[in-house]
Nucleic acid binder design. Structure first.
Length: 280
DNA sequence: CCAGACGTTGTT
DNA sequence: GTCTGG
DNA sequence: CCAGACGTTGTT
DNA sequence: GTCTGG
């Protein structure tokens, strides 16, 4: 394999491991309030206001999502101005809400299907029964500050942190993974869940995996989340890999391996010798 | 028609 | 709910 | 994704 | 080895 897009030390330690689900851990340290501000979202669900920064989010856990609201008129531009609402979603009624990672279709007999719907391939999202209705009418974005992937070299597994460079600032910052959601009525009440869409990888991600999460361009947020948008072909076209130049990756320590560890140390760059061996 | 599945990934 | 298999 | 469990009985 | 929990 030719490794062109990772820095040489990173390229040297990546191996061929292409048999895992995609994007199964991620990091969101930006607060929902700031996400709302950056995205131009007017509504924040009360339950999400107590969200604390997370550095190691795993499937099955409560997460943050942004979704379009049906039957709510957008505020007129004047009111938008007075409310200080700007950003890519200022013209679309949206809310920042919470949902569990692992989509449970509304018709499911039990919630066990949720362990297999962490990701949804864009190639089949509009045809497969579990995902089709959500793809057509219940699209969302899942804000993140980074995600993790594991790469195996000579039997040794190394976690990588992967970030996305903001077009505004030129530095890694919050980004939006494309998702779909549903609401399932369970014995203990309603459960809202989501799945992260995946697509074919760009050249950087291809060194690590054969899939990558769909990361939306800011100018596409509103079209993606508009519940009245029925242009399936157009929606599908939005779900393509972002440019590799907009991604950064570095190895991190084994701390992140356990979902019980959830601290800023999970992000800390590790040397390629990490974990240290007896003889360095 | 009913019954049963319904997902991701890749299968080194 | 919606599709496939029988 | 990784870590960790992986059984029986029956149930204040 | 395989499944669940996080």
């Amino acid at each position: 394999m030719v490794l062109r897009n990772l820095p040489p030390p990173l390229a040297a330690m990546t191996g061929s491991g292409f048999n895992r689900p995609m994007c199964c851990r991620y990091h969101l340290s930006t607060s929902p309030v700031l996400i709302a501000e950056l995205f131009g979202v007017a509504t924040i669900a009360p339950a999400i206001r107590s969200w604390l920064p997370r550095y190691n989010i795993a499937p099955g856990q409560a997460c943050v999502m942004v979704r379009g609201l049906s039957g709510v008129a957008p505020p007129p531009p004047g009111l938008r101005q007075r409310g200080g609402l700007s950003g890519p979603l200022a013209s679309l009624p949206c809310e920042v809400a919470t949902a569990r990672w692992g989509l449970i279709p509304r018709w499911a007999a039990d919630e066990t299907i949720g362990v297999r719907t962490i990701n949804a391939g864009i190639e089949t999202a509009d045809s497969t029964p579990s995902l089709r209705e959500s793809f057509r009418t219940r699209r969302c974005v899942v804000p993140a500050d980074g995600f993790y992937e594991w790469t195996t070299t000579g039997g040794r597994k190394t976690p990588l942190w992967i970030g996305v460079v903001s077009e505004q600032t030129g530095t890694p910052g919050p980004f939006a993974m494309a998702g779909i959601w549903d609401r399932w009525e369970g014995p203990a009440g309603a459960v809202e869940t989501f799945s992260v869409l995946t697509c074919a990888p760009n050249s950087l991600m291809a060194e690590i995996h054969d899939r990558m999460p769909v990361i939306l361009a800011r100018e596409d947020y509103a079209a993606w989340m508009d519940p009245s948008n029925t242009d399936v072909a157009g929606l599908t076209r939005l779900c393509r890999a972002i440019a590799p130049e907009r991604m950064v990756a570095h190895p991190v320590g084994a701390l992140v391996n356990s979902p019980r560890h959830d601290s800023p140390r999970c992000l800390e760059p590790a040397s390629q010798m990490d974990p240290p061996t007896l003889f360095g």
